[in-house]
Structure formats: structure tokens, C-alpha cells
């Protein structure tokens, strides 16, 4: 807005009234920009379900895990039905489905991998090894 006024050739600095207005406009636009960047920051963690209640988080993790095991078991059973080797592939794919369920769950719990700084802040995993001895 202030620039538009400048191109018109008006000297905003000398006119006390207009100068005041353009200052206030500048102030407003900078405040708006600051708020926008703040809002963009606040919008970011939408991927991590921060707004979701604990109940729905728990339900979500459980359903991810169950779906993995279920699909693994179904695929294994399907192959066995076709090939006639009943327990073999069911067992293999059930185990793979278990792994997929864990993978699903860990992805659902933490969609974005931690940054290097966050990793440095985390406690080291070998901390409680000494206590066990």
C-alpha cells in the first residue's frame, strides 16, 4: 500500500497526515506478516494429530496394528488356500503382518522423523543398561 502511494509521486514523509497513515500501514502489514508466519508454524503439526484426543490416538494406533496383522493373515491364508499348504504361508505372512502392524504403528505415532537437533536432545538408549547389571 505504501509503495503504491510512493509511485503516485506523493511525498509521504513531509505530509504529517499521510506520513502517519503510511507508517501505520507499514506497521500493520509487518504485524500481519508476523502473524501469518506464526499461524503457518501453528498449522504445521497438523500432521501429528496434536489436536486429537488421547482416546482417538489410542484407537488409531490399535486399528493400525490390527489392520497389519489382519491383512498379513488374510494374504497368507489366501495363498495357502490356492496352493494347498495350509499352515505354512499363514504362519509366515502372519509374522510379516505383525511386523507391518508395528511399522504402521510407529509411523502413525510419529509421522515426521525427528531432526538431528531433536535426536541430540533425546536420552541415549544405553542409559539403563548399567542398572540391569
Amino acid at each position: 500500500m505504501a509503495r503504491q502511494r510512493d509511485t503516485k509521486g506523493e511525498d509521504t514523509g513531509t505530509d504529517p497526515k499521510l506520513g502517519d497513515i503510511s507508517d501505520r500501514l507499514n506497521d500493520l502489514s509487518s504485524r500481519l506478516a508476523a502473524e501469518k508466519s506464526l499461524k503457518a508454524k501453528a498449522d504445521k503439526p497438523i500432521m501429528q494429530y496434536q489436536g486429537a484426543s488421547d482416546y482417538s490416538k489410542g484407537y488409531r494406533l490399535a486399528s493400525e496394528f490390527i489392520a497389519g496383522v489382519l491383512v498379513g493373515g488374510l494374504i497368507g491364508y489366501g495363498i495357502d488356500r490356492l496352493a494347498g499348504t495350509l499352515p505354512l504361508f499363514l504362519i509366515i505372512f502372519l509374522l510379516a503382518g505383525f511386523g507391518a502392524g508395528i511399522l504402521n504403528m510407529s509411523r502413525a505415532a510419529n509421522r515426521t522423523p525427528p531432526t538431528a537437533e531433536e535426536l541430540a536432545k533425546m536420552p541415549k538408549p544405553d542409559d539403563d543398561d548399567d542398572e540391569d547389571k
Binding site: 489392520a67 497389519g68 491383512v71 494374504i75 505372512f93 503382518g97 507391518a100 511399522l103 504402521n104 509411523r107
Partner: peptide, 11 residues
Amino acid sequence: EIISFLSRPIS
């Protein structure tokens, strides 16, 4: 990974 992908519609 494939099983994980296939389990998405289910979950």
C-alpha cells in the same frame, strides 16, 4: 512394506 500399504484401507 507391501503388507503395511495393503493394510491402509483396512485401518
